[in-house]
C-alpha cells in the first residue's frame, strides 16, 4: 500500500518461517484412498489408529465400512517430510528478523518469533512447519497399494529432478 513496487510483489509472497523447520514434532500420517471433504480436527487416534491390525499381507483397517489395506512408505533418503500450515490471522502476524538468535536455544527462538508484531503491509502471509514425518501409511481400497502405487512413482521425482537441474559442465 505505501510502497510503489511492493504491492504486487508482496502479494505473491508466502514466507516460510525457517525456525519452524528445525525440529517440529514427528507425527503419524495416513494417505487414505478416499475423498474426505473437510479440513479439520478428527479423532483419528480414537477411532482409526486403534482399529489397525497387522494382517497376513500388511495392515488392515476398516473405514466408513470399507476395508482398507495399508503399508508403510518411507520418505526416500535425502528428503524430509513436513506438514506446513498457514498461520491463522496471517495478515497481522509478526514480523521475523531472521538474523537474530537462530543459533540459540530453540525454545527461545520460538518465543522470539511468535509474539505478533504489527506489520507494515497487510498482505504478507506466513507459513510454518507444524510437524515432520519420515514415513507415512499408504492405504488402498481392499488391496495393498503395492509397488505400483502412483505415489511411489512420485517419490522418484526428486532424483530425476536432480538430474534435470544439475548444472552441466562447461565445454
Amino acid at each position: 500500500m505505501e510502497s510503489s513496487d511492493g504491492e504486487a510483489v508482496d502479494k505473491r509472497r508466502v514466507h516460510l518461517r525457517p525456525v519452524t523447520l528445525r525440529d517440529p514434532a514427528p507425527i503419524l500420517l495416513h494417505l487414505l484412498p478416499c475423498e474426505v471433504l473437510v479440513n479439520r480436527p478428527a479423532p483419528v487416534g480414537l477411532f482409526f489408529t486403534p482399529a489397525i491390525r497387522q494382517g497376513p499381507d500388511g495392515l488392515e483397517v476398516s473405514f466408513r465400512g470399507r476395508s482398507l489395506r495399508g503399508e508403510e512408505v518411507v520418505v526416500p533418503p535425502g528428503l524430509v517430510g513436513y506438514v506446513m500450515t498457514e498461520e491463522k490471522g496471517e495478515v497481522l502476524l509478526g514480523k521475523q528478523d531472521f538474523s537474530e538468535g537462530l543459533e540459540d536455544d530453540e525454545q527461545e527462538e520460538r518465543e522470539l518469533v511468535e509474539p505478533p508484531e504489527a506489520l507494515e503491509r497487510d498482505f504478507d502471509r506466513f507459513i510454518g512447519a507444524t510437524a515432520s514425518f519420515s514415513s507415512f501409511t499408504l492405504w488402498g481400497l481392499e488391496t495393498i497399494p503395492g509397488p505400483d502405487a502412483k505415489v511411489r512413482g512420485a517419490l522418484t521425482w526428486p532424483s530425476l529432478a536432480a538430474a534435470i537441474h544439475t548444472q552441466v559442465p562447461e565445454d
Binding site: A42, V83, W157
Partner: peptide
Amino acid sequence: EKNHSWFINESVQSGGLLHFATPMD
C-alpha cells in the same frame, strides 16, 4: 491422485496432495 485425503495426526486434510520442493536450475 484423485480421491485421496490425509489423516494428519488428529486431523483430516482433503485432497491428499503431496508437495515436492526440489532444487531448480
